[in-house]
Design a protein around this nucleic acid. Structure first.
Length: 533
RNA sequence: GCCGGUGUAGUUCAACGGUUAGAACAAAGGACUCAUAAGCCUUGGACGGAAGUUCGACUCUUCCCACCGGCACCA
């Protein structure tokens, strides 16, 4: 049963998808694209890691919409479980109110980071609760849920089960007491049954990015899978979704939470709570009698991509996939795992005082600056170190001095020399058009591999080229001798700038709009990025 | 402990076994002025250590040192 000693052939199972095939497909037909991040647990405020994942997903969402694909982009909050209950109790607040409060801080990211998600799913939403119960029933019907005695270390002080990791010298870190071994009857999920199927799943090209994470997943599965408990006694932990037909148990939080990826689409029926305001889909609702079609359209017929942190492999690529298999639903086609953000060479922590708050950065630098930094200067797959100094350096060098200054100098000349707006399409020089399609292809290629930084670097190379061109052609000098010739040069520059704006749209939507509008008005805009000293 | 990865300029990253190891940011100097004292040009600066394979190694092998990740009930 257990596979051992894989040969060289097996080793190929984690290869990434052939990008040429993907590209061809994408060029030839409109696709339905489903994107989701993981749902943050509402026991803490949003940190930069959440922002990274969201901005990555959002850039892809905007990019895909921009090339004509239909996108459903999901985000939301995970609100059940022991830790929320504890935190709320500690805060002396009713649990739901506590969850509401934190959920709100995450919803604020929509504005702060200019996110374009189509639905914000909360795991305490009535529809989601029904969906989680339906998922449970399906797994039960499949014969994958059974009752068994769970034996674990229980800390009387914490009033909960603890793990070895929670212990310091064999004692609970919070209470300094040795935990007792306690038995409880719980429901278990037959995870072990899916070992073979999961290995088959992992063998499909591109289901996990980056590749080395796929290797980790394979190793893990090959090591053998054990069934695990998916419920808790309601006496010890009441803050969860009731197990169908058993009043004494609630679901263990992640079993409920993972179902959000499809409950957000209205699964298993059309009674979902409604789309986020501003959603693209709200403006043009899916065809059909109810939103059941969203599930069919995006999860079944569409291409599905999940974004998650590197610590999520077990949950997203294994447990969730096994649940889907058990419920006889299609698997996720791709999960992209990002790294963590450290600061000053250390994990961000409150005690170290090096926690970077995305909203604070937005307040200081602006939405697009934060998006820019996360996408361009944070490694999409490995851990990255982010400090306020690095942020400022990148901001000044590339946004203030680079993009912002370029916009100013070109549009100042346009405003002074040209009498009317340069319609970018009409006046684009051949050169600009060539550059455009060439660069668009490059950025598309990189984005398909989730290489956000490389995709943006292409744009910044173009910015450098345009700056150099101004230096070389010196339209401001030419103006003194030959005004028509100077106008010609400036029109060309404006067309180039329009290309930059268009390329920036998925990454920095507000800036792209500002530049485009300034071009249309033929007016130098207000300083886009004020230089920080 | 087992498995995997990484160690290149002050910093973040590149480099089919082969001419003087490339960029970017930061630093220093210069000519210009349309622009946010921005932009352009120029300059200085690096292969963790040891041995080996090879005509030749940053690139392959072994060992050492350092760092990081994975090895299930924390979401």
């Amino acid at each position: 049963m257990i596979m051992k000693g894989r040969n060289a052939n097996d080793r190929r199972q984690c290869k990434t998808q052939n990008t040429k095939d993907t590209k061809l497909q994408n060029l030839t037909m409109t696709q339905n694209i489903y994107l989701t991040t993981t749902l943050p647990y509402v026991n803490d405020r949003p940190h930069l890691g959440h922002a990274l994942e969201l901005v990555q997903a959002d850039a892809i969402a905007r990019f895909e919409r921009g090339r004509g694909n239909e996108v459903f982009f999901n985000f939301g909050t995970d609100e059940h479980g022991q830790k929320i209950l504890e935190a709320a109790t500690k805060a002396g607040e009713p649990v739901q109110e506590y969850a509401d409060r934190y959920a709100a801080t995450f919803e604020l990211l929509r504005q702060g980071l200019d996110l374009s998600y189509d639905n914000f799913i909360r795991t305490t939403a009535p529809h989601h609760i029904l969906a989680a119960q339906e998922m449970w029933k399906r797994c039960e019907v499949a014969g994958d849920i059974y009752k068994k005695k769970y034996s674990g270390l229980y800390c009387v002080g914490c009033e909960r089960f603890v793990t070895e990791k929670d212990l310091v010298d064999g004692k609970c870190a919070d209470h300094g007491k040795e935990p007792v071994t306690l038995e409880e009857e719980n429901y278990f999920f037959r995870f072990s049954k899916y070992q073979g199927k999961l290995l088959d799943y992992l063998r499909e090209p591109g289901v996990i990015l980056p590749e080395f994470r796929c290797e980790e997943a394979v190793k893990f599965v090959e090591g053998g899978l054990e069934d695990f408990s998916i419920s808790r006694s309601i006496e010890k932990m009441s803050w969860g979704i009731p197990v169908p037909n058993d009043e004494t148990q609630v679901m263990y939080v992640w079993f409920d939470a993972l179902t959000n990826y499809i409950s957000t689409l209205g699964w298993p029926n059309g009674s979902m709570g409604g789309l986020a305001s501003g959603s693209e889909l709200e403006a043009r609702p899916p065809k059909g009698p109810d939103s059941k079609d969203l599930f069919q359209k995006f999860w079944v017929d569409g291409h599905t991509t999940q974004f998650a942190g590197k610590d999520q492999i077990r949950f997203q690529s294994l447990i969730w996939q096994a649940m889907l298999m058990s419920a006889d639903l299609p698997n996720t086609q791709r999960v992209v795992y990002h790294g963590f953000i450290n600061s000053g060479g250390q994990k961000m922590s409150k005690t170290l005082g090096n926690v970077l708050d995305p909203q604070a950065l937005v307040a200081e630098y602006g939405t697009d600056a934060v998006r820019y930094f996360l996408l361009r200067h944070v490694n999409p797959f490995d851990d990255s170190d982010v400090t306020p100094e690095r942020f400022k350096e990148a901001y000044n060098a590339n946004l203030a001095n680079g993009l912002g200054n370029l916009t100013s100098r070109i549009l100042k000349m346009a405003e002074s020399y040209l009498e009317e707006s340069t319609k970018s399409e009409a006046r684009s020089t051949k050169q600009a058009l060539n550059t455009k399609s060439e660069i668009q292809n490059k950025t598309a290629e990189y984005l398909q591999q989730f290489e956000f930084g490389k995709a943006m670097e292409v744009v910044w190379n173009l910015i450098g080229v345009i700056d150099a061109e101004i230096q070389e052609k010196e339209p401001f000098k030419v103006w003194k001798e030959d005004q028509e010739k100077a106008r010609e040069i400036v029109r060309e520059l404006v067309a180039d700038l329009a290309v930059v704006a268009e390329l920036l749209a998925p990454f920095m939507p507000q800036t792209a709009t500002k530049i485009t509008e300034a071009i249309t008005a033929n007016k130098k805009p207000e300083t886009l990025f004020v230089r920080k000293e």
